[in-house]
């Protein structure tokens, strides 16, 4: 439970002066990522603890090395949660690592993504300066939104020291139902119908011929769903395991993530896949060229868990390169996953 920011800043300045590359690391729960050669490690794992938490403000401020599991326990004691369910690999991820990756869990398709819940950050720059952006309030449009920009940046722009996140009340109850359905799109169309009836959806996942849906909300609102919708009641732990990437296709090195703006658009893949986030996220193994895969999945972007972003035109790449230079002119940061 300690604040190690000044030590971390010292280390960054020393590395910068020595021309040494630095690789930012949390708990190393994303075991498929490799530390790049010739970089020493800047470990955020010891930089832990909740800095402030006032449940009536719906805001928690936490150091980056805090395990998500611990943070969620502290929130649950006050009847609150991280509604975006950041991916928590094997239950070992830190919140800083989750931000660097930017992956959100099943609830995010309805509640909002991890990026959406970020209110502010304290970051350590490649110059060794500690800077604050955003804040602990719900709304703040002064200056550029650096905190949300950093979500998903994989340690390539700055080290996150602290983050302020919006939190929400825990639902009174959760109900998981499973339905046999060979057609993933027909399954997601059903989900869309329920959405049209304003049912409190918080997860919709199709894999191996089964649709798994989760509802969260007031007990009174959930009580008649089982009899009304049919299906088979399941233990809520299936969504937990999914979020921890510990089951089935997701265990080991995760497959590619394909992002779909239109959840009900056609899919023409000839391999096993998982349709997640109500149809907006598709997990599939690599095979053939990426453009063909993206077209078959009707996706606008594809992400490799190892190498990061795999799409976007030349202009987008130019923006990424220019921003990396702005944040890190000397090329101090060595993001994970680039090792041979």
């Amino acid at each position: 439970m300690s604040d190690r920011s000044s030590k971390l800043a010292e280390k960054v300045r020393a590395a910068r002066d020595a021309g040494q590359a630095l690789h930012i690391r949390g708990n190393g729960s994303k075991h498929w990522l490799e530390t790049p050669d010739q970089a020493s490690t800047l470990s955020l794992a010891g930089h832990q603890g909740i800095v402030s938490y006032d449940p009536t403000e719906l805001v928690v401020t936490v150091r980056a090395g805090t395990p998500i599991t611990e943070l969620e326990q502290a929130l649950a004691e006050q009847g609150q949660m991280l509604a975006c369910e950041p991916v928590n690999v094997a239950g070992r991820s830190t919140i800083g690592g989750a931000l660097a990756l930017g992956w959100s869990g099943p609830r995010s398709a309805w509640a909002g993504t991890l990026r959406d819940f970020v209110l502010g950050m304290k970051v350590l720059t490649a110059e060794g300066d500690i800077l604050s952006f955003g804040g602990q309030v719900m709304k703040n449009v002064a200056g550029y939104d650096v905190s949300r920009l950093l979500v998903g940046s994989r340690g390539g722009l700055a080290a996150v020291l602290e983050v302020s996140l919006k939190v929400l009340p825990l639902p009174e109850q959760e109900l998981v139902l499973s339905f046999t359905n060979d057609d993933p799109l027909a399954a997601m169309r059903r989900v869309r119908e329920w959405e049209g009836q304003s049912l409190p959806l918080s997860g919709a996942l199709w894999q191996a011929g089964a649709l798994m849906v989760r509802f969260s909300g007031r007990t009174t609102a959930l009580s008649h769903l089982l009899s009304r919708l049919g299906g088979e009641a399941r233990d809520a732990v299936v969504f937990q395991r999914h979020r921890e990437l510990s089951a089935g296709l997701l265990a080991g090195t995760p497959p590619l993530r394909l992002y779909r703006q239109r959840p009900l658009s056609a899919i023409a893949l000839d391999q096993d896949f998982i349709l997640d986030h109500g149809g907006r996220l598709l997990w599939a193994r690599a095979g053939g060229d990426l453009a063909t895969l993206m077209a078959a999945a009707n996706a606008h972007a594809v992400e490799s868990p190892v190498a990061g972003v795999q799409s976007g035109n030349a202009v987008t790449q130019h923006w990424h390169t220019a921003l990396a230079k702005a944040f890190d002119p000397q090329g101090l940061w060595a993001p994970a996953g680039e090792a041979a």
Partner: peptide, 27 residues
């Protein structure tokens, strides 16, 4: 459209790189 007149598309759920859409919103 960038200052030089080039066109790019930015998405909310683009992950694997910095979230450029968040930077543009409110800029």
């Amino acid at each position: 459209v960038t200052v030089a007149g080039e066109l790019l598309d930015l998405y909310a759920d683009d992950m694997g790189a910095a979230n450029l859409l968040a930077l543009v919103i409110g800029s």
